[in-house]
Design a protein around this nucleic acid. Sequence first.
DNA 1: GAGTATTCGTTGTGGTACACAACATATCTC
DNA 2: GAGATATGTTGTGTACCACAACGAATACTC
Lengths: 387, 387
Amino acid sequence: MPKGTTEDVRQQNLAAVLGLLYRGGPASRSSLGRRTGRNRSTIGSLVGDLVDLGLVSESDPDLVGQVGRPSPVVSIRPEVTAIAVNPEIDALTIGLVGLDGTVRSTIRHEYDRIPTAAQVLDVCATVIAGMGADRDGLLVAGVGVAVPGQVRTGDGVVRNAPHLDWHDQPFGQPLAEATGHRVLVANDAALGALAEHEFGAGRDHDHLVYVNGGASGIGGGVITGGTLLGGGAGYAGELGHVRVSGSNALDSAGFAGTLEAEVTRAELLAALGLPRADPAQFEAALLADRSDAVAAIVERQLGHLGTALATAINLFNPEVIALGGFLAALQAYHPTRLDELVAGAALAPSLEGVRITPAELGPNLLMVGAAGLAFRPLLDDPASISG
Amino acid sequence: MPKGTTEDVRQQNLAAVLGLLYRGGPASRSSLGRRTGRNRSTIGSLVGDLVDLGLVSESDPDLVGQVGRPSPVVSIRPEVTAIAVNPEIDALTIGLVGLDGTVRSTIRHEYDRIPTAAQVLDVCATVIAGMGADRDGLLVAGVGVAVPGQVRTGDGVVRNAPHLDWHDQPFGQPLAEATGHRVLVANDAALGALAEHEFGAGRDHDHLVYVNGGASGIGGGVITGGTLLGGGAGYAGELGHVRVSGSNALDSAGFAGTLEAEVTRAELLAALGLPRADPAQFEAALLADRSDAVAAIVERQLGHLGTALATAINLFNPEVIALGGFLAALQAYHPTRLDELVAGAALAPSLEGVRITPAELGPNLLMVGAAGLAFRPLLDDPASISG
DNA sequence: GAGTATTCGTTGTGGTACACAACATATCTC
DNA sequence: GAGATATGTTGTGTACCACAACGAATACTC
């Protein structure tokens, strides 16, 4: 809720300018003025504040034959960073991500057995301490954590991450105490949605559904009205556990006939005769195999995926549905089929406004998404960095 | 998006004060000050503006033994009104609703056959002109229309209202031209959700799903983060067309196995041996009939409803699910059963934060909801009334 | 029943933020 | 090199809210 005093106007305008730079990259002062609708003098003052805060820097204009006095280019300083954390079954990835969108470094810590929350917290603390962010003059805005499970976003407690076997594990608070940084935790697919919204397939849209197919299950995240849909406690968007059939195949939550139970990478891998494959190998192998057996499985899985996506369309009326992981491969196997199947269960008006497309961001998706979460307080209130 | 100048601060504060009065009823100046966090002098100025705009009036304080100087009570003037319109298969209801929540009058125009959009527009224009709102010194903020179908909220075109057999019918714009008022159009269940959020079962919650069971089908509306979820074009929330079974029973949109196809009032009426019944009669008759035949139908319908609600819980993580129409009767038939069924398909963390409850608003639900829609521009920017 | 404490409206002052106009500056065009 | 064009810079004006001091209206105390 806005405080209601004149000073939030400053906050909002600072946030507007910084947000434009965050999403759109470097821009001239005059371009910022046009896009925010602010006066030249105001933009000058706003940019000055952001420079003083150490968030942006101004550089000489590009000499591109514009008439008139050149306008300085404002860029986000790459030293403004966030730390992204993503624990998975077999590894923990920790990245240092700049507010300018660059992933400065990632560290991957492998586990030979599923790590406990305590183990992950331990490694996080030492790795983050060892990053020497202060030494390098970096400004760390905070830590964002992408967890494959349901996270109570209010206090960063991991309520249930079946694949990690974490249940009601406090994570945000202990990590904040260990690192001294502000820590925000959320579901991994939700952060994928955030990243695709800000930089990927949903760049130009404010209503996006992201569905990710991973080795261990299917997750979903929803952007509505330009913001991440959390619901009451942050659990919203769990598209993988939507029931799509009457079968009794079980998903990771123990529910029968859900999208995650019916549409699995494992089944496809088995049909392809592959013991394991990275995402690129998987997609190549799937697209190459046109056998009846594989085609039948794809058709069945596409049918269930279509049902789930139709449900999402009927409920969220998104402009874009971005498919991540093996779901993108599934769609690519038969480029028109998924659209047909969805059309059989989604209302026509909602259908005409939606595009089902592969996600655009690659392996850094979760790093960018988690960092985006960590940057949010800064992007909402740029002056908060100084306090 | 906020304009970014100091004047929006005024707008926001005016909206905050008016919003408190709208949702909470009359309040003293000092109470408004406490709840908005504004200074006494600011509140005085804000209330003064609202009085000048003709939106509120001040009256002598209640003498309730408070220490200190009594604070004047600020109330919304009942003359501030909106016109609510609700076309249905067999009748058109037009109501005059005060910003203070009172339904001043309703006019019901019956049809012996399904009316066309042109006919409804015609009746609306004459009825609204005949209301003599100007004559009575009323301030009409606008017209809100609740349509049983999918509405493109941007321009008020009814895209598809199967029961009315309206398809791509412009409605908002012609009605605006005919009446001279600002007209907003939305789906009826969405407006039901709005009303239940503001005044009913979701009064104290910002995440609500409303599901209505009517004679002709099942509609849904969703409030997330305190605002109505519209999606890209305003079609979001169509819970009735979510697939819940593999059967080939068809719903009004021609889709098989959906909630609307499986859970119908007509089937229950037939089992009860009633040719027709109003909502109260229906609920009484259903609760009285404990025959095996009826119990079996209820059990099956509750199962499908449970599946759909579990989907809603997994996707929206609401705090409240409000059941309207015969769905409330269905739940009441077996008070604990629906919760059990939902628990079998909804993720535990999301489940613990939700309450499934009958809707609280009675027959005026859609009048209040449609008026709430019409009041929205005024509540967002109270000063806009003078322009 | 008079004095005091308490609460709240009112008024005047100060601080912050943005718009606007006038001026200065830097580039392009011819 | 002069004019046109676009933009940064500076000073002024306006809108808004917080705060403090004062006054008003009630309840409480003895």
